[in-house]
Design a protein around this nucleic acid. Structure first.
Lengths: 258, 258
DNA sequence: CAGTAGATATCGCCT
DNA sequence: AGGCGATGTCTACTG
């Protein structure tokens, strides 16, 4: 069976639909005028307005307005959704423990309820992440510097795992920290911690070197690198491939000034 | 007028609905079997499956499966949505510049299209954020240490703005870094940079102190703080208030093992 | 379970 | 437009 939709249902009918959808493990959308309360790691209150509530069978809850990529309120996976009618109004509560937090959506009016049985793939392959950059370095270590010899990835140190560890042409240990995008002061600090941790592993007098590999670096980060005696190597950012044109009939919506 | 819904529409009818919704500035949901391609800062490919596509009038696009809080694909606000029918199939493309990236959703089957006119508030008041912690410190500076005198918030330094700046009971400058939750090594590094930047502002010999204020700290971060001669002060995390019970009739869905 | 760091992070503020 | 840091970040991975 496919999607079930109720148009302007009564609050009780909306509850029945939610109940059945929960039972089937469907994904649910509720569009309606509501208020939202959250309490847990922080607390928040959202006044009356039209929002889209999404309830996933894995326990995720999302409340979206007509703006922003980030939901205005949410509950992470693993929460337990409950729906009820109180004082004649639909209420949805999503709750979890550890941390203890709950989301309450109280509907004044339910414009639409839909139950969506979902099948098919959920995992997406992403290219151009840090792991791809690592592979580029391993394939051609000279990108770091001539004569660089990579020996391990994710090598453990007291300060945490190092992206790439190896030795330079003169036999000195080298720590390589990879970033897929322009880096700020935090990355310089991270690399510095790794280098310090490594030097403590070796006998006194052995100096470890640190190399930050990224598309570019901010001024402040460059200063920090210089202070700590760390190197920076620029690499091309992951490239965006061009794509084809549009179709026959079309419609457009512009986000900025449309 | 209120929500418009098409149940199992033809691809052309779906396009008409999208076109009209874009024109009105409605929020749109499309549920259907589709593939998704993304190319931009990274690139990704998502095979056939049922997903919920949300198109917001501000240019946001979200593709959700039945799992996870994070959309499997998306486009940030400011993008331009276009819909078209090609080879008899609905295609939605959302595209933006700076950075140049695009999202392509190709539908094999459209289960449902809805256009949702949205009104009402979108801004949520959040309590328990770092700003609240700052206020607690300013109201009672002794929480940092007896005799602490706060003098400025967001005080600028060469390393960036310091959360709270002041002097201790002996007249030494103090940098306070606030975190609303348990902190790791990054926060220690951040505070260390601020203290170093401050000491450079003052004549040689003047020592600035650094205090990290947070609910708790990891072992590694504690070591880093000790190395850098920085202090840690524990404060209560923002408290969660209890809330009322459920309603008359109810339905439940459990995320984990339900 | 906690710790650690990546992410197409997003978002807001300020220069 | 870029830099910088907070976020109820979320998410995966490792010990």
């Amino acid at each position: 069976m496919s999607v079930t939709t109720l148009h302007r249902p009564t609050h009780r009918d909306a509850l029945s639909a939610l109940s059945a959808a929960f039972e089937r493990g469907d994904m649910v959308t509720v569009f309606g005028r509501c208020t939202v309360e959250y309490d847990g790691r922080a607390a928040s209150s959202l006044g009356r307005g039209d929002r889209l509530l999404i309830l996933k069978p894995d326990g995720t809850a999302l409340v979206h307005t007509d703006e922003q990529r980030t939901p205005v309120n949410w509950q992470p996976p693993g929460s337990e959704h409950r729906a009820a009618v109180r004082d004649g109004r639909l209420r949805v509560r999503s709750e979890r423990e550890n941390p203890d937090e709950r989301l309450d959506v109280r509907f004044e009016q339910v414009h639409q309820v839909s139950a969506l049985p979902v099948t098919g793939g959920r995992t997406v392959d992403v290219y151009g992440s840090e792991e791809d950059l690592r592979q580029r370095i391993l394939d051609d270590p000279d990108l770091v510097e001539p004569g660089f010899q990579p020996e391990a990835t994710e090598r453990e140190t007291a300060a945490g795992p190092v992206d790439v560890f190896g030795h330079d042409s003169e036999g000195r240990p080298v720590v390589v920290e990879l970033k897929r995008r322009r880096v700020g002061p935090d990355a310089a600090g991270q690399l510095g911690r790794y280098v310090e941790a490594l030097e403590r592993e070796f006998p006194d007098g052995v100096e470890a070197r640190g190399v930050l590999v990224a598309p570019s670096v901010t001024d402040r980060a460059r200063e920090l690198l210089a202070e700590k005696g760390l190197a920076f190597v620029a690499v091309d950012p992951p490239a965006a491939t061009a794509n084809g044109p549009d179709g026959e009939a079309s419609a457009a919506s512009e986000g900025e000034d449309g």
